[in-house]
């Protein structure tokens, strides 16, 4: 597991910064909830009556007056976007950075099979996402405990699971793309993550674009569906996990035969 340990060490600082930033943002969201709770009845009605804007962000489906409704929109967006960007950066650079920095020659002139190297890199990527999410869950639960809000733990953890799977999907797809790149590709990774986010908004806004919900991971991580149904949208999840598996398989197939510079 030398490559796994090496990757974890290399990515430790970025992981710490992203974890701290997202945890802090989520904690702030939780801490300001009691301040807003008194005015929530009016805010909730107002948010629900904002027409297309409400539809776009799923605010018509959630009750802002309850913590879970508030969490599904405010906190969900923080983790949804922040986590997706981290996952995209992690995935898109996982393989391409070796050629970009010229270290592929160093690594693969050692007796290490490419499949093993890729397996350990993939594991480190998933581990980083797991660490980020566990820390974020801990920060959120601790903040909720301090503030004393009523939490539906099952729904809350299901939301976190959905966001974790969303990050896994984005990381896996960008990992696959990374195998084709020789020079970075940060723009592609970030563009893909934000593209998925806007696909979900478009699918909420226009009926004829509703099918996009099944192509973007934000479809199965939709706060309104998860909190109201206490389940993940399985069709979107199935497509998402299939895309993640395809990203990993394509990445392996490409990289195992790639000429390394």
């Amino acid at each position: 597991m030398t490559i796994f340990r090496h990757e974890m060490k290399r990515g430790a600082l970025a992981l710490a910064i992203w974890t701290a930033a997202i945890s802090f943002m989520l904690a702030v969201c939780v801490f300001i909830y009691p301040e807003m709770a008194g005015e929530m009845d009016q805010i909730s009605d107002m948010f629900a009556d904002m027409g297309a804007f409400s539809d776009a962000f799923g605010m018509d489906q959630l009750n802002f007056g309850e913590f879970m409704g508030y969490f599904g929109i405010e906190c969900g967006n923080t983790l949804g976007i922040g986590g997706a960007l981290f996952a995209a950066i992690l995935g898109i650079s996982m393989l391409s950075k070796e050629e970009k920095d010229g270290t592929a020659e160093f690594l693969f002139s050692h007796p290490v099979s490419r499949s093993r190297a890729l397996g350990e890199k993939l594991l480190s990527m998933l581990c980083s996402l797991l660490i980020l999410n566990l820390a974020v869950v801990a920060a959120c639960l601790l903040s909720a405990l301090i503030v004393g809000v009523e939490v539906h733990y099952g729904k809350l953890l299901l939301m976190f699971l959905a966001y974790f799977l969303l990050q896994v999907e984005i990381a896996a797809i960008t990992f696959g793309i990374s195998a084709f790149l020789k020079r970075g590709g940060l723009g592609i990774g970030l563009g893909l993550a934000l593209g998925f986010y806007f696909m979900n908004i478009a699918s909420n806004l226009l009926e004829e674009l509703e099918f996009l919900k099944y192509l973007t991971p934000y479809g199965f991580a939709d706060g309104g569906h998860v909190i109201n149904n206490y389940s993940l949208e399985w069709r979107s999840l199935s497509v998402g996990m299939a895309l993640a598996a395809a990203g990993i398989i394509v990445g392996f197939r490409k990289y195992l035969k790639k000429d390394l510079s």
Partner: peptide, 12 residues
């Protein structure tokens, strides 16, 4: 094998 490339790229 011990391999020394023409340009030594190392992890920063």
């Amino acid at each position: 094998i011990g391999y020394l490339p023409s340009e030594t790229a190392l992890y920063s």
